Computed example of a mutant assay.
Amino acid sequence: MTRILPAEQNPVIDLAALFGDAQVLRPGEAVSKETDIILAVNETMAYVYSLQADRSLRATANVLKNDPRIDFIA
């Protein structure tokens, strides 16, 4: 468990926005051939599933490492 930052420190991270052009599955959508990433998010953590074989897990992790509010990536 990690502590949640106070509101004045902008604690909400828009993970979909971090992935730029990637097709991130949105709530209510169905997975398609174009879907690149699926996010399973709760208030303090998220699972990030990369569906495209040409996107390495390291590349996905490197995108997430660019946001200093993300504390732990495994």
Rank of each mutant, 00 (worst) to 15 (best):
V48E: 01
M1F: 03
I73P: 02
A61R: 03
A59Q: 11
N10A: 12
P6L: 02
G28K: 05
R69F: 06
R58L: 08
A59N: 05
E34L: 11
D71W: 10
A7K: 13
E29K: 07
A61T: 01
Y47D: 07
Q52N: 08
E29F: 07
S56H: 08
D36Q: 10
L64W: 09
E43Y: 02
I38T: 04
T60F: 00
N10I: 05
G20F: 00
N42D: 07
M1V: 07
P27S: 08
V12N: 06
T44Q: 15
T44W: 11
Q23W: 04
T2I: 15
T2Y: 09
I73S: 07
L25Y: 02
Y47I: 13
M45K: 08
P27R: 05
I73K: 10
N66W: 06
A22R: 09
I38D: 00
A22E: 04
L64Y: 05
A30M: 13
I4R: 07
L51Y: 04
I4K: 09
E43S: 14
I70S: 01
S56A: 12
L64F: 09
A46R: 15
V48R: 01
A30Y: 09
S56K: 11
Q23E: 05
R58A: 07
V12L: 05
R3A: 12
N42M: 08
V41S: 12
A30H: 13
F72N: 14
A53G: 15
R58I: 08
L5S: 15
V12D: 08
P6V: 00
L5T: 06
A46H: 10
A61K: 05
D14S: 12
K33I: 03
M1G: 08
P68H: 07
A61E: 01
D71N: 09
Q9C: 12
D71F: 10
L51W: 04
I4F: 09
E29Q: 15
M1N: 04
D36P: 01
I4P: 00
D71M: 10
T44D: 14
V24C: 13
D54E: 11
A22Q: 07
A40K: 14
Q23A: 05
D71K: 11
M1Y: 04
A16Y: 01
R69G: 03
M1T: 10
L18A: 06
V12R: 03
E34D: 13
A53Y: 10
Q9Y: 07
S32A: 13
I13G: 01
F19N: 02
I70W: 01
I37F: 03
A30Q: 09
I4W: 00
Q52M: 15
A61S: 06
Y47E: 14
F72E: 15
I13V: 13
F72I: 11
D54R: 11
S56G: 13
D14A: 07
R26S: 09
L5W: 02
S32L: 05
A17F: 14
N42C: 15
D54K: 13
L64K: 10
L15K: 01
D54N: 10
G28M: 06
I70D: 01
Q52P: 02
T60M: 11
D54V: 11
S32M: 07
F72A: 13
N10L: 15
T44M: 12
Q23S: 08
V48C: 12
D71V: 14
E43A: 06
A74P: 02
R69H: 11
F19C: 05
E34I: 01
V63A: 04
A30V: 11
A30P: 00
E43H: 08
G20P: 00
D71Y: 06
V12Q: 05
Y47S: 06
